[in-house]
């Protein structure tokens, strides 16, 4: 009786094992259903989703103009103190003093890519970019200035 149970067990185990192996064999012979990406080799064709939160950036148009008014909404919204806005006062030809950004400092080393700064921005001046290979050799390089040198605020953005 014991021997019969034992043999039945071995038979059932082998059968169930082969059922599983059949599935493995199916995918072994059907290469088209493999979806693995060969990452560093496919850099040229790899496209991440547009919304992928890689890093914060400030889009500039062809006249080197941005939309940041320096209102500090993003600085307040950031949970980690990633953003620091250093503002200055521009003097217009009529002699009016207007607040503008001098430096938009973004610390990538402290950023968690939560996207709350983009959500808080009233003028859509900052966005998340889908770049992702962001490692550098010196961590000082992670402290970035987002507004380009010589850039100024776009006309009409308040």
């Amino acid at each position: 009786m014991f021997l019969k149970d034992y043999i039945t067990d071995v038979y059932r185990a082998t059968k169930s094992l082969l059922t599983g192996m059949k599935l493995t064999g199916y995918y072994f012979t059907h290469h088209k259903e493999i979806i693995t990406e060969q990452y560093p080799d496919n850099r040229t064709t790899l496209k991440l989703a547009d919304r992928f939160k890689g890093e914060v950036w400030m889009p500039h148009d062809e006249n080197n103009e941005h939309a940041c008014t320096g209102c500090s909404s993003c600085e307040i919204a950031c949970p980690n103190g990633t953003i620091k806005i250093i503002s200055k006062f521009d003097v217009s030809p009529e002699g009016k003093r207007k607040k503008a950004i001098d430096q938009f400092v973004y610390r990538l080393d402290m950023c968690t890519m939560c996207g709350l700064c983009v959500e808080a921005c009233p003028t859509d001046a900052i966005k998340m970019r889908n770049t992702f290979e962001l490692s550098v050799f010196d961590r000082n390089n992670l402290i970035k200035r987002l507004n380009e040198p010589g850039s100024k605020i776009r006309e009409g953005v308040e």
Binding site: K53, M113, G115
Partner: peptide, 23 residues
């Protein structure tokens, strides 16, 4: 990734709804 912008730590929910329109 397409809708929330991240694969693991999405942070898509905000008080009052969701952060953005779905893709």
């Amino acid at each position: 990734e397409e809708t929330c912008g991240a694969r693991l730590t999405m942070n898509y929910m905000v008080p009052g709804g969701v952060m953005a329109e779905p893709h």
